[in-house]
């Protein structure tokens, strides 16, 4: 169980946690950021799996571009998943 395997397992758990967070989180912006975390860890996995080309692509497209495209869409539509939970100050009010 050398250091590399342990760190891989931790990153794997981190990735699945980020995935679950992305699905559960109501605020879409945080969800998108969680998705970019998943892509980042994925890029590291590709590096570990001896696939540098793919790691570079995943980093460039997965982390950077997909996130920005999602953020642009959120900006043009709605930030929160369903309007009812509008956040005013720090209290979430059902509209």
């Amino acid at each position: 169980m050398d250091i590399l395997t342990i760190s891989i397992i931790i990153m794997a758990i981190l990735q699945i946690g980020a995935a679950i967070y992305a699905v559960i989180q109501k605020d879409l912006l945080y969800a998108v950021i969680a998705t970019s975390v998943i892509s980042l860890i994925l890029s590291i996995f590709f590096y570990v799996l001896q696939a540098p080309d793919v790691a570079l692509t995943e980093a460039a497209i997965g982390v950077a571009l997909t996130t920005i495209v999602f953020v642009i869409t959120i900006r043009n539509t709605e930030r929160h998943e369903d309007k009812r939970h509008v956040k005013i100050g720090n209290k979430i009010i059902k509209k």
């Binding site: 969800a31 799996l49 539509t77 369903d82």
Partner: peptide, 25 residues
């Protein structure tokens, strides 16, 4: 399950990441 279109697309992009990881591994 999720009702918001963007959340659906997030789900689909997570599926894509999973598939790519599987393919490389």
């Amino acid at each position: 399950v999720k009702r918001s279109l963007i959340k659906i697309l997030i789900g689909l992009s997570i599926v894509d990441s999973g598939i790519n990881l599987l393919l490389v591994s």
